[in-house]
């Protein structure tokens, strides 16, 4: 993938270091606008850091991010929705001591300070929240505190919260990790459905079965650098990938 025109996100020499550790090291990569892209790589290869940089959760140390043709040297977290980006977190970060319902609601309502003071829940908010909660199968649990839900339910709720944003691009940090088969199938269905609706999906995963099955495009990172990228089966058959990632 070299032509940036078809890319929704393009990074040039993107860098992030923590002390002496180069978590992301002059990474130049393009993520296609259509379909599902999976980011894989060994532990510590910079996958989560990359997602954190793209969503503005971490400030970048160098390089540039081009989102939909707009070049950014500074990605601010609160501006990421304006770039059409939303995300989930590896460690599932919900608003624990508020209800599942309010966890969805809070991403639907007014962002501007003063108008938000005078805004009450609108029917449109309610409809979206209900639709999303039903889609992820959490409607029955809407009144439960997020912190009281099971791990799988929390993952679903977090994905639902991202879906409620109705963004163009979704960054899912390990959406399949730690899920029972039944839940896993549900998340897979959601991801495929979102792709079919025309959204860009980018997810990190360690589950090789899913990586073989779901994505259209694969990005392999190693030590913060791009190892290789391309069509899934093509990439997975390359010698350097087998060596660096799959072992042997």
């Amino acid at each position: 993938m070299t032509e940036s025109s078809a890319a929704v996100i393009h990074t040039i020499d993107l860098s992030k270091h923590f002390g002496a550790v180069r978590a992301v090291d002059e990474l130049t990569v393009a993520i296609p606008k259509t379909g599902i892209t999976s980011i894989v790589g060994p532990n510590g290869s910079g996958k989560s850091t990359l997602v954190n940089l793209l969503s503005g959760t971490l400030p970048l140390d160098g390089g540039i991010v081009i989102i939909d043709g707009v070049g950014l040297r500074l990605v601010k977290a609160h501006e990421s929705p304006q770039h059409g980006i939303t995300r989930t977190f590896q460690e599932v970060r919900l608003f624990e001591q508020i209800s599942a319902w309010d966890n969805i609601m809070v991403v639907l309502t007014e962002r501007r300070l003063i108008p938000s003071l005078f805004e009450r829940v609108k029917p449109a908010h309610r409809e979206t929240a209900e639709r999303v909660l039903r889609e992820v199968g959490m409607w029955e649990k809407r009144d439960a505190m997020a912190g009281e839900l099971s791990y799988g339910q929390r993952k679903l709720l977090e994905i639902g919260r991202a879906m409620a944003m109705n963004a163009q691009t979704y960054l899912f940090d390990e959406p399949f990790a730690g899920l029972f088969p039944q839940m896993l199938e549900r998340v897979k269905e959601i991801v495929v459905r979102m792709r079919d609706q025309g959204h860009t999906l980018i997810f990190i995963s360690h589950n090789m079965d899913i990586v073989r099955e779901l994505p259209d495009h694969l990005i392999v990172l190693d030590s913060g650098k791009l190892l290789t990228e391309g069509e899934v089966h093509d990439v997975l058959s390359r010698a350097e990938v087998i060596e660096a990632y799959l072992g042997e």
Binding site: H78, L94, T109
Partner: peptide
């Protein structure tokens, strides 16, 4: 009025995880 408004809900989200709520477009 404050705590039952959209503003109030954002406050509780800030209490729970202010880094996470920022990603959803709140300053």
């Amino acid at each position: 009025l404050i705590v039952t408004s959209s503003f109030g809900r954002v406050l509780t989200a800030i209490r729970e995880d202010e880094e996470a709520i920022a990603v959803f477009g709140y300053r």
